[in-house]
Nucleic acid binder design. Structure first.
Lengths: 143, 143
DNA sequence: CAGCATCCCGACTGATACTG
DNA sequence: CAGTATCAGTCGGGATGCTG
C-alpha cells in the first residue's frame, strides 16, 4: 500500500531511466556489494528485527525463527563489518551484547520495507504464476 | 507500518510456528519469496538490464559481465516462472528468443533502482567500514 | 543463436560440543 | 549469555561438450 508505484509501461519501450551505473565502467557498479548483504535472507531478517530497536544476541535468535546460532553470529558480524550494525559489549557478569542499526543500516530499512510491501502485494500473483508455469511445464525442475 | 512487528513470539512449547500472515507483522510473511528472487544478484542484474527494454539471450549474457550461460538460463527461467519476465520465441532460422519484463516485473524495477541507488550512495562508506573492521580485527575471516 | 546435460569443486549451513 | 571450534552434508555455480 505504501508502495506508490507509478505506472510504468510494461515491456515495450519502458527503460525510462534506470541507470544505476551510467557506464559499463564498473561491471556491476557496486550493486553486488549490497546484494550480497541484502539478498541474504538472514541479514534481512536481522535488519527487520533490529529496525524495532536494539536487541541482544539471544533476543535476535529467538525472534528469528529457524536461524542457527552460527548463522546469527556470522550474519551480525558481516553486518557489523559493513557498518550497518553496531555491536556493543557490556562487561557485565554474564556477558551482554547488544546490536543496533547504525544510521546507514537504518536507511536500509526503508528499502527492506518497500521490498516487503511489494512482496505482500505480489505474493499471490507470483504464486499463481508459478503454479501456472509448473502445470504448463511438467517435469521441469527449476526450483 | 507494515514492518512494525511487536517482536518476539517465542512461545515455549511447540505452538504455532507458521503465522497466518494476515498481517504483515511476521517478517517471514512473503519477504523471503521476494528475496529469494530479488536477492539473487543475477536476477537483479537481469531485471536491471531488461528495464532498458527487451533483450535477447546473448544480449543479456554480453551485458551482464561474468554471468555464465548456465546461470543466465536458470535466472531467466525462474523469473519467467514467477511471472516477472516474459519469454518469447521466434521460430526464425537461427532460433531467436527475447525476454522482457512483465508489468509485475516492471514494478519491481523501482525497488531495484532504489536498491542500486542506495548501493551507490553507500558503496564507499561500506568499503571504508570494511577496511576499518578488518584492520581492527586482524586475522578475522568473515568472508 | 539459444539452450540442455554433466562433471565437479568449494562455499554455505546446520548440528554439536566446548569456553569465557 | 554470547560466543568459538569442528565436522559433515548440501548445493550453487563454473567449465565443458552437445542439440535444434
Amino acid at each position: 500500500m505504501s508502495l506508490t508505484h507509478t505506472g510504468v509501461t510494461p515491456g515495450t519501450a519502458g527503460a525510462a531511466e534506470l541507470e544505476p551505473c551510467g557506464q559499463p565502467d564498473h561491471p556491476d557498479c557496486g550493486i553486488r556489494d549490497v546484494l550480497d548483504r541484502v539478498g541474504d535472507k538472514w541479514s534481512v531478517l536481522v535488519i527487520v528485527e533490529l529496525a524495532h530497536g536494539p536487541r541482544r544476541f539471544r533476543q535476535l535468535q529467538r525472534a528469528i525463527d529457524g536461524i542457527s546460532q552460527r548463522m546469527l553470529t556470522l550474519t551480525v558480524r558481516r553486518l557489523e563489518r559493513d557498518g550497518l550494525v553496531l555491536r556493543t559489549v557490556y562487561p557485565t557478569v554474564p556477558a551482554q551484547v547488544d546490536y543496533r542499526l547504525t544510521e546507514t543500516g537504518a536507511s536500509l530499512t526503508h528499502l527492506v520495507k518497500a521490498l516487503a510491501d511489494w512482496s505482500l502485494e505480489h505474493r499471490a500473483g507470483i504464486a499463481r504464476a508459478r503454479e501456472s508455469y509448473d502445470s504448463d511445464h511438467p517435469g521441469n525442475e527449476i526450483r
